[in-house]
Design a protein around this nucleic acid. Sequence first.
DNA 1: TAGATTGTTAATCGATTAACAATC
DNA 2: TAGATTGTTAATCGATTAACAATC
Lengths: 212, 212
Amino acid sequence: MMPMSRAPEPTVLRLSIYLRCLRKAQEEGISTLSSAGIERRTGVSAVQVRKDLSYFGDFGTSGRGYDVAGLVERLRHIMHLDEPRKAVIVGAGNMGSALAGYQGIKRAPFILTAIFDNDPAKIGRRLRDFHIQHIDALPEVVHTECVDLGIITTSLASAQEVADHMAKAGIRAILNFAPVRLIASSGVAIRNVDLVKELEVLCFYLPESINC
Amino acid sequence: MMPMSRAPEPTVLRLSIYLRCLRKAQEEGISTLSSAGIERRTGVSAVQVRKDLSYFGDFGTSGRGYDVAGLVERLRHIMHLDEPRKAVIVGAGNMGSALAGYQGIKRAPFILTAIFDNDPAKIGRRLRDFHIQHIDALPEVVHTECVDLGIITTSLASAQEVADHMAKAGIRAILNFAPVRLIASSGVAIRNVDLVKELEVLCFYLPESINC
DNA sequence: TAGATTGTTAATCGATTAACAATC
DNA sequence: TAGATTGTTAATCGATTAACAATC
């Protein structure tokens, strides 16, 4: 009935899954999808889909399901993806370079705006479509370009300092690739991509030495 | 008391956190750490730490805490990180290249063994310390080198096919960077790193247009 | 012994699932 | 109307937290 604000985090993660599924359906020319249809395409149970969506409003039609285009628009709005979201990368190493070339981060609504580093040897050098800027220029760029998202691809040693710089510059959301749990400034959302952790967890589920 | 096998997944994820914390403490020359000490260093509550460890055995000493070196060894064993773990990358694009240069994946117990692609133009070319091999060579390499881990950095379009190839070649654990939920062959553990999803979730938690 | 800290059992909390009335 | 499907309330499930006896 009423949009209740506080959705659990697992729900928010699934919204992104639904959005991807609906966009794909849209490309396939499908105009209506039931929660059962979304289950078939995502693996998330139909009742979970309906429950998740119900946190934000009534989007479906009894007996028919959800209008695909309409729900895409609603989800885009709910997730704040209906206007451009500018991002900057700090750390012009391997990972920063890979992300700067990654299409997913350059597609709407995301706009990759600048890349920073603190290594004097790198400043001014070209990386993909960008010139690497000194980290000191971050606040200026964040301010003039209205940057929302900060991506940290520095070494472990610099990550917390960079996160603090970002928060101070006004960035309210950080994606961190350094293998450290950052201490968040208040009001700053942080998500961590921890590749070593992922590999270690996979090893846990691996039977010991199957191949040898 | 008794090691009870079935630990919940959140527990397994935290084991990796504890291991990192303990290794750091070890480097700092700390020989004993209580669950309260681990809480201070990781943010995971002391009772959670004790509960998590209790799934696998009794590792602590009442009144003192945990022997750091001993617990590191125990955790390494529990997580199957006490012998080399060979990994291959499929997809020699930006992300594959970045991972091939990433130290975290080259440090013990991980050994990056080979990189594959299906683009004839790339085969044989040098990438970091490797020569890119044709994907058809995957089963041979997996077999002779005893590869445990497969990392997928291909496009969305190829990811499922590559996952199937990996499973058929005998790889039992896959780390997937393509933005798609892979259908796992039975007995194959899969973890997904979904960067667009991470960015979208961050946007959800972002207030709308603060900087503009 | 007294103080500190573990490992476990019971209580709580939060998310998922089941059941179902409402409605197109 | 009959069939399909939604949104919600109640029941279940699983993980976290609290309480505490055991023990070094």
